[in-house]
Design a protein around this nucleic acid. Sequence first.
DNA 1: ACTGCAACCGAACGATCGGTCGGTGCAAGG
DNA 2: CCTTGCACCGACCGATCGTTCGGTTGCAGT
Lengths: 213, 213
Amino acid sequence: MDNSVPGTASIGRMPTVKRDTYTPDSLLSVAVRVFNERGYDGTSMEHLSQAAGISKSSIYHHVRGKEELLRRGISRALDGLFGILDEPAAREGRAVERLEYVTRRTVEVLMTELPYVTLLLRVRGNTDTERWAMDRRREFDQRVAGLVKEATAEGDLRSDVDARLATRLLFGMINSIAEWYRPERAAGEGSGDTSAEVAEAVVRTAFAGLRTH
Amino acid sequence: MDNSVPGTASIGRMPTVKRDTYTPDSLLSVAVRVFNERGYDGTSMEHLSQAAGISKSSIYHHVRGKEELLRRGISRALDGLFGILDEPAAREGRAVERLEYVTRRTVEVLMTELPYVTLLLRVRGNTDTERWAMDRRREFDQRVAGLVKEATAEGDLRSDVDARLATRLLFGMINSIAEWYRPERAAGEGSGDTSAEVAEAVVRTAFAGLRTH
DNA sequence: ACTGCAACCGAACGATCGGTCGGTGCAAGG
DNA sequence: CCTTGCACCGACCGATCGTTCGGTTGCAGT
């Protein structure tokens, strides 16, 4: 299908940032794309080598093996998500405001780091790496669940729906974006598919239902 | 782990409905459980044989192969979902009422047929069987999207969120139930986890946000 | 008592899996 | 010019994949 070229072909000869060959990161972006298309278990090293345009054995020059590619991809997603919780707007102010902010930013990170977050969301728990990913993800969910509880206690969220259930449904909406959002389709103006616009729609849809009014 | 016994051991000797050995359907329920635990591609016939307590080759006495187990499992989920659209309450009345009904029933079917629907939702499209499953699922989604459009046109749903996006977020909430609902945990009274109770929470959370008020 | 068949089994098939090995070519540095 | 080392390769490894084959066992029907 897509015989992609390693990096952006640059005429510069000096060891600038860009290279003509693969780096662990540029190879990762190819691998993660294939993982998402075929599933991690359904992807063989042969598939990866064809998608990258180098031989199977050459992949091992850049990374230790298949599982390292999975771990690196998942790490990138987790870094993006946990980074949200460290931002000022996620730490200060009324709980419901912090929750709205985290929701909006989670949608944005999910869309800008789409392949990596998609990979994270599909992990099942067969290996140590996958179980570690699930644990870290659960940790993120629980941090947000704490915000939901706080906001409910402060009377800003309706209390006739259990906080844990509400959190799950909220993440259900957010995470489902990975199932249908395709950035190449969002190029046109006014398509209503930029990350900020989708984030706004998610917040409106979710919070108008969760808020007390 | 679980060396399950084929069927419910019955003392009856005549060819009643229940058997002491595996039927394609009873084997299917074991296989689908393992598929969901390990992922379809991550499940080998050896895994299935161990979970079923019979040898690998014996599986082929009941079904043609691994992919037939996938196809049967997915079919069962699709039958349940499309069955909803044929029910009277999904065909008569105001669009927003039909939409609420379909939403509620979809949650219920998802929870009663949990393993089969979970299997359907995780299909990625590597084989013909998987692509057929994705096509059928998209067909179901579009039928519901039609209801959303109708209800929006009738002025019962807010129009500041695109109908297609709203449908996707609605299914995001519904389908995410497969990610966390575990029936064995819902046995206790008042746990708020029966299918009707969860369905009610989903409808409330989703529609209070989507409705005009 | 004999037959037929459902339900099962171990052994083995070719294919493919993730990963290793011993190179080759070539650009940069001295 | 010669050396060094990065990026890459084809050939191959043992293990495991889904599937097939040739049985064996035990019960139902006659």
